Amino acid sequence: MNAMERGLADVPHVDKAPWVLAFGNEADGWDIEGDEDDDGEATGLPGERLVSDALGSFAGCWGDYHRASAAKIFNLPVDLIAALDPQRFEADAEDVALDDLGTLIQVIGGCRTQFGSCSVADMARFTNQHPTRIIQAMGNHPWMFLSGDRDNFAKLFIEHEGE
């Protein structure tokens, strides 16, 4: 059992079926209706490169990678992410840049809850980061904001306005 698998073993699966079953048309972002660079119909789904980069940051946060744990946290089918698995590499949790961490938070939040809310405490646990680092990373991403009790990370929620 590696560090990621041990650290996330008792995190329950999200109580909804995965809603992302394929990747959107925009490789580096969310395929949102009204995007100027859409080549086709907007799907509302994340792009393949966006999810792949987020998985790489996720592995960097843990210094390890475990596909089933990643699928559980992102609420994605294992077979969908199997082809995207980042190469195994060693990294310290502090090595993940704040911009990359912010994108990781957005992708986990979007995929896990279909842009519902997730607490700062849960996101910190999912990403193996301190809650204040989660809040710092969100500061670089204007489409995410916090709501709730700022004195209690378990009651302070990450919300999404869209991209």
Rank of each mutant, 00 (worst) to 15 (best):
W62Y: 08
A27G: 06
D122W: 10
D99L: 14
F23W: 04
E159K: 11
D85E: 15
I105L: 05
W30E: 01
V51E: 01
R67P: 08
V51Y: 00
G139D: 10
L101D: 03
D79A: 12
E94N: 14
M123R: 07
G60N: 04
D149H: 04
M4F: 08
E94T: 15
C118N: 10
P131N: 08
A9K: 13
L76R: 01
G60F: 03
W19P: 00
Q136A: 15
A82V: 06
E94H: 15
I81M: 02
A82S: 14
G162I: 01
V51W: 00
G109E: 07
G40M: 08
P12V: 10
Y65D: 01
D64F: 02
A70L: 03
I134D: 04
L45A: 05
W19L: 13
G47L: 00
G109Q: 09
W19Q: 15
P46R: 00
A124Y: 07
A70C: 04
A154Q: 12
F115T: 06
L80V: 03
D38N: 15
S57V: 01
H130V: 15
G24T: 00
E161A: 14
G60M: 05
G102K: 03
G63S: 05
E90K: 14
D100C: 08
A3I: 14
A83V: 10
T113M: 02
D31M: 03
I81N: 00
E90F: 13
A42Y: 02
E90Q: 13
R112N: 08
L76K: 00
